[in-house]
Amino acid sequence: MTEAPRVDTAQLMELLSVSLGAYYGDFTVAAASENLTASQGKALTVLRRGPAAMRALAETMTCDASNMTGIIDRLEKRALVRREPDASDRRVKNVILTAEGERVTDAIRAKMRTTQAGLDGLDDEDRASLYALLERVFTPRPTA
């Protein structure tokens, strides 16, 4: 049995870059098919995890708070999200995905054919391995 060649961090980062570029391209086309920008689609995807304060949403999406306001304004006009005052601090506005926003988010994912085809080509064991590896790589670890 031959040993697999060692893959260094630079090679992994390059493959991640290529993979994420392909994913982002697929996502951008799917979002556009729903008449959304990639940033608007990303906001819906983030909100699928649960309501978020505007500031937290801007931090998650690594964008300026004023830019986030414009993104949410446009999504709210289409009834894809709604703003509600936070129960503990009425100065804070939480953004909540509406049922229509959920439908559009599902439609975007369903239209990501390249990504779907790649993932569908994995067997159950490979899917579980990929999930576990991505979770290990991208889950923040406590610092000492």
Score class of each variant (00 low, 15 high):
Glu102Leu: 13
Ile71Pro: 09
Val92Ile: 12
Leu75Lys: 12
Val81His: 02
Lys77Gly: 08
Ser88Asn: 13
Gly101Arg: 08
Ser88Arg: 14
Thr98Asn: 11
Val95Gly: 03
Arg91Trp: 04
Arg90Val: 15
Asp73Trp: 00
Leu80Pro: 06
Glu102Asp: 12
Lys77Phe: 10
Ala79Met: 04
Arg91Lys: 13
Pro85Tyr: 09
Ala87Leu: 14
Gly70Met: 02
Glu100Met: 14
Val95Ile: 07
Arg78Thr: 00
Arg90Gly: 11
Glu76Asn: 05
Arg90Thr: 15
Ala99Tyr: 03
Asn94Pro: 01
Asn94Val: 01
Gly101Asn: 02
Arg91Ile: 04
Val95Phe: 00
Ile72Lys: 11
Lys77Ser: 07
Arg83Trp: 06
Gly70Tyr: 02
Thr98Gln: 11
Arg82Ile: 03
Val92Ser: 02
Ser88Gly: 14
Leu97Gln: 12
Arg82Asp: 12
Arg83Asn: 09
Val95Ser: 11
Thr98Cys: 09
Leu97Val: 04
Leu75Glu: 12
Arg91Pro: 02
Ala79Glu: 12
Lys93Gln: 15
Ala99Arg: 13
Val81Thr: 07
Val81Trp: 03
Ala87Val: 15
Leu75Phe: 02
Lys77Val: 09
Ser88Tyr: 13
Ser88Cys: 03
Val81Gly: 00
Ala99Leu: 02
Ser88Trp: 01
Glu84Cys: 09
Arg82Val: 14
Asn94Leu: 12
Arg91Thr: 14
Arg91Tyr: 04
Val92Asn: 06
Thr98Trp: 07
Val92Thr: 07
Val95Glu: 05
Asp73Ser: 05
Val92Trp: 00
Ser88His: 10
Arg74Ser: 06
Val92Cys: 10
Leu80His: 03
